[in-house]
Computed example of a mutant assay.
Amino acid sequence: MQLINDELEQFAQSLTTAEDALQQEVHRYTYAEHAEPHMLSGHLQGKLLEAISWMIRPEKILEIGTFTGYSALCLAKGLQDNGELHTIELRQADAGKARSFFDRSPLKDKIISHTGNAKDIIPALPHTWDLVFIDADKPGYIDYFNLVLPRVRQNGFILADNIFFHGEALEAEPKRKSAKAIKAFNEYITANEAVEKVAITLRDGLYLLRKL
């Protein structure tokens, strides 16, 4: 299912501030070298993440799912001077490549990389989060949400990516495991009274959740 009209998306990109040089390089590398380039946040969503971070001015950001590092580079821009972004990636190769990009950023000292299972790493991080971005394995979404919610400050934000899952989450009975998991996550969040929610129709769908 094509969710976003290509011509409209290209027009929106033309109206949007361009990526910086390092973001452009991550974008090019991912589409040229990675087996799953569709997982990249990309220009429009990246700029939205960046804008949200600037609006919140977080001290502590948690990202679950580093991939090649694009979204972390966007989110880190709005950090306070003493801020930190902790990003977790299960796959060693992706974590290493992302770190190589982070090390070339002026924000490199604010980005802390963790490699391994997020369900093990999250409880060991002794922080209260201002902003959390969930963009990892879809069957883990509900668990990740429940792990981070108690540590998100009141009126802090959680972002969850891919809530449309290529349109499959709109189906009454999705067939693929990840689509089923996203549909269950959406239903779980819709019924959850601990957060205020906005579903954003950008790219593959983005949930914006505010802790009440």
Rank of each mutant, 00 (worst) to 15 (best):
L75D: 03
A118H: 02
P123D: 14
M39N: 07
D94H: 06
D109Y: 07
T115E: 07
S71Y: 06
A98Y: 05
A72S: 06
N82A: 08
E63Y: 09
A93I: 13
S105Y: 06
P106N: 04
F102C: 11
A95Y: 01
G42Q: 08
M55D: 13
S41T: 07
P58N: 07
L44G: 10
I121C: 11
L40D: 01
F102M: 08
A124K: 05
S71H: 10
P58F: 12
D120R: 15
E50V: 04
D109Q: 04
D109R: 08
Q45T: 14
F102I: 05
I111P: 03
D103N: 15
D103F: 01
K47P: 05
G65A: 13
G65N: 08
A118F: 01
A93F: 09
E59L: 08
L62N: 11
I112V: 13
L125N: 14
S53H: 06
L75P: 02
L49V: 08
A35P: 06
D94A: 00
K97S: 02
L125D: 10
L40Y: 13
G69L: 05
I121E: 14
S71M: 04
I52D: 12
R91F: 03
A124D: 02
K77C: 10
Q80E: 14
A95V: 04
E36F: 10
H34N: 10
D103L: 03
I111N: 03
K97E: 03
A76K: 08
P106T: 05
I52P: 06
